[in-house]
Design a protein around this nucleic acid. Sequence first.
DNA 1: TGTAACTTTCAGAATTATTTGAAAGTTCAA
DNA 2: TTGAACTTTCAAATAATTCTGAAAGTTACA
Lengths: 168, 168
Amino acid sequence: MEWQEAKDKFIQNWGALGTVWGINRTMAQVHALLMISPKALSADEIMEELQISRGNANINIRSLIDWGLVYKELKPGDRKEYFIGEKDMWVVVRQIIVHRKKRELDPMLRVLDEISNSKIPDNSEESIALNKTIRDIKLFSSKADSILDVLVKSDSNWFVGTFLKMIK
Amino acid sequence: MEWQEAKDKFIQNWGALGTVWGINRTMAQVHALLMISPKALSADEIMEELQISRGNANINIRSLIDWGLVYKELKPGDRKEYFIGEKDMWVVVRQIIVHRKKRELDPMLRVLDEISNSKIPDNSEESIALNKTIRDIKLFSSKADSILDVLVKSDSNWFVGTFLKMIK
DNA sequence: TGTAACTTTCAGAATTATTTGAAAGTTCAA
DNA sequence: TTGAACTTTCAAATAATTCTGAAAGTTACA
């Protein structure tokens, strides 16, 4: 396989993976490109490489910066902005978890709190079931939350090492 | 809050959560409805409750069965099929993980293997970076894989208990 | 068999998400 | 200030996904 072919294949597949991970295809492709690029790239280089418009490139680069997966790099004496991708997989996954938790899980938990604070009376089979489901989800989420917190704060080697030891 | 309102809110929000989790809105709503319903519901009841068409209901119910989140229930002397939702949150999350891993992670890993088996020579800064990224992702994934395997096979109480003990 | 009761399928319609590209905005050196 | 070099915005176009509903398929039993 040629290098170019391998690279395209990687970018395409990372893009496809992105779509099912709540990250849009282009955003994931830009990320893939920057992840395998040893040097910082400009918006124009990204547009050229991925064949996308300026607007699209801009929006997705900003999102990646927002997600903490890409950093801006300014070269002295150059007005252009260059972008460099986070290369450490552990950091990449961690950032995605933090961001998605905030964006998706937290709103759901707020709704559950709102419902359970309003104390739907257990006066029918239906409301008993609803109350139980809400209790279960909250219990589950708070556990998941603790686990994710540890995961996010911990160092990769420590985490995986301890974990794999624990399950032996 | 009225029970009906709480129920609708729950279903709406579970649906929204679904869309960012690679599960379409209706599928997640049907799942929410069945999760909080103490008794099995027929396709017609689901259509009525969620205001969706027969085709839509049918397809999404089948997907849920396929994902192991909903079971068919046949009542003697009744030709209609009834559906009952998995109520155990641990099982729900486990099934989603298993299914998504198979659907999303595994294809990516296959592509990475294909690329790395073709042995792109380390003859430029770019191909060195690509090779390194692929190695890193594979290493990370194999660890994540082991962890997910344990997670999927283990019992909820054991897992969370041991985990939380470990991090103390 | 025939047929009523049900489930499945699928082409086209509707909806939702993404992308484009041109115009507006910003910044900086002269 | 000005204007060149760049970035951002956003309305309209395009693409992708999801939904509808009617027709076809299946099944059980009289």
